[in-house]
C-alpha cells in the first residue's frame, strides 16, 4: 500500500471538510402521511356478502371477472386473499354468534389494500415505485418496479400480490384505491360506489372517523368499541367497524407504531450525509498509516497484487 502520509492527509482533509460542511443532522422520525387524505369506512355489521364490490372492482380496474361472480354461498367455503387477478375479496366468518333461532350468524369481511398512512411498502420499495399521494392512495408505478418483492415482505396486511407466472414483465398487483376516479371531484371507488347496503362509506378520513365514532356511540351494543385502522400501524385510510373481534375476521392485531419507523430511524441516523462511512474510512485510513509506517519499502513487492 503506497499510503504516503501526504496522500493520506490530503484525502482525509477532503473527507473531513465534507463532513464539516454538512453536519449529520439526525432528525427524529416524522410521519410522511398526507394532511387530509381520503378514506373508506367498512362497517362489517352492514355487509351482506353480495360480492358486488368484487365485481365492480374488477370492472373499473380491467381485471378478469371474479371467480363464480354470482355465487354467494359455496365460494365462501375457502378463505380467499386478494391475488394477481383480484384486488379485493369478501370472506365469510362464523365467529360463534347466533341469532334468535340459534342459527349461526355469518360476518362478511372485505379485504383490500389498507392504504396505510405510513405504508411499509412505500418505505421498503427499492426504487420508489410505490408512493402515497395526497388523495391517500398508495400508488404503484410499474415502470420503475424491478420485481424484488420487498414491498410484499414489508406489508403487515399481506396485501401486494405478484404475477408469479409472468417470466419477464410480472407486476405487483394491489388495490389502487381507484386513484384516478377519486382524484376527480365527486369520484367514488368502484367498490364503494356500488355497495347496496352502505357497508362501504367513502370520504375524507377525518370525516369518516367522526362517522365511525358516532355509530359506536349511538349503538354501543352492536359494535366492538374500536375503530380498526384509526391507530393500527400509525393509521390506515381504510378503516373497519365490527361486532366481532377483529382478529377473528382476519384483521391482524398490530402495534400503533408505523412499521417503517424503526428501520428509517436507524438508516437515517447511520447514513445521513454518509457521516458514518466517511468516519470509518478516516479511522481505517489512520490505522493503515499507523500500522504500515516504515513498512512501505519492505512491503512494496509483497503488496503488489496482494490486495
Amino acid at each position: 500500500m503506497h499510503i504516503t502520509r501526504r496522500n493520506f492527509f490530503r484525502f482525509m482533509g477532503a473527507a473531513g471538510a465534507s463532513v464539516a460542511v454538512r453536519p449529520p443532522s439526525v432528525h427524529a422520525w416524522q410521519s410522511q402521511a398526507p394532511p387530509d387524505p381520503f378514506g373508506c369506512l367498512v362497517d362489517l355489521t352492514r355487509c351482506v356478502g353480495c360480492r358486488k364490490c368484487e365485481e365492480a372492482c374488477a370492472k373499473v380496474n380491467d381485471l378478469p371477472e371474479p371467480e363464480r361472480v354470482n355465487c354467494q354461498c359455496t365460494i365462501f367455503e375457502k378463505d380467499r386473499r386478494p391475488d394477481d387477478t383480484s384486488y379485493t375479496v369478501i370472506n365469510r366468518y362464523y365467529t360463534g354468534t347466533v341469532d334468535v333461532f340459534d342459527k349461526p350468524v355469518p360476518t362478511y369481511a372485505k379485504v383490500q389494500c389498507m392504504h396505510c398512512q405510513d405504508p411499509a411498502c412505500v418505505s421498503a420499495c427499492i426504487v420508489g415505485a410505490l408512493t402515497k399521494d395526497d388523495t391517500g392512495a398508495v400508488h404503484y408505478d410499474v415502470s420503475k418496479c424491478i420485481g424484488c418483492r420487498y414491498c410484499m415482505v414489508a406489508c403487515p396486511f399481506e396485501i401486494p400480490a405478484y404475477e408469479y407466472y409472468d417470466p419477464i414483465t410480472p407486476r405487483v398487483m394491489k388495490c389502487t384505491f381507484c386513484q384516478e376516479r377519486i382524484s376527480k371531484k365527486g369520484g367514488l371507488p368502484g367498490c364503494a360506489g356500488i355497495c347496496p347496503t352502505e357497508a362501504l362509506t367513502f370520504g375524507r378520513r377525518q370525516t369518516l372517523l367522526g362517522v365511525a365514532r358516532k355509530r359506536l356511540k349511538e349503538n354501543p351494543g352492536s359494535y366492538i368499541q374500536h375503530i380498526y385502522g384509526e391507530k393500527e400501524v400509525g393509521g390506515t385510510s381504510w378503516m373497519y367497524l365490527s361486532s366481532v373481534p377483529f382478529e377473528e375476521v382476519n384483521l391482524p392485531l398490530l402495534p400503533d407504531t408505523p412499521s417503517p419507523k424503526l428501520s428509517e430511524t436507524i438508516q437515517h441516523s447511520l447514513f445521513s450525509y454518509l457521516w458514518s462511512p466517511v468516519l470509518l474510512f478516516g479511522v481505517l485510513g489512520a490505522c493503515m498509516a499507523r500500522f504500515n509506517r516504515g513498512n512501505d519499502q519492505k512491503q512494496n513487492n509483497a503488496d503488489k497484487g496482494g490486495a
Binding site: S123, C145, P170
Partner: peptide, 18 residues
C-alpha cells in the same frame, strides 16, 4: 427478481428510506 432486465433501475430511481 421478477424483472431481471430492470436491475439497473435503482441507480436512477433512489429511495433513501429503503
Amino acid at each position: 427478481i421478477g424483472r431481471s432486465w430492470a436491475i439497473w433501475k435503482p441507480m436512477f430511481h433512489w429511495n433513501l428510506n429503503s
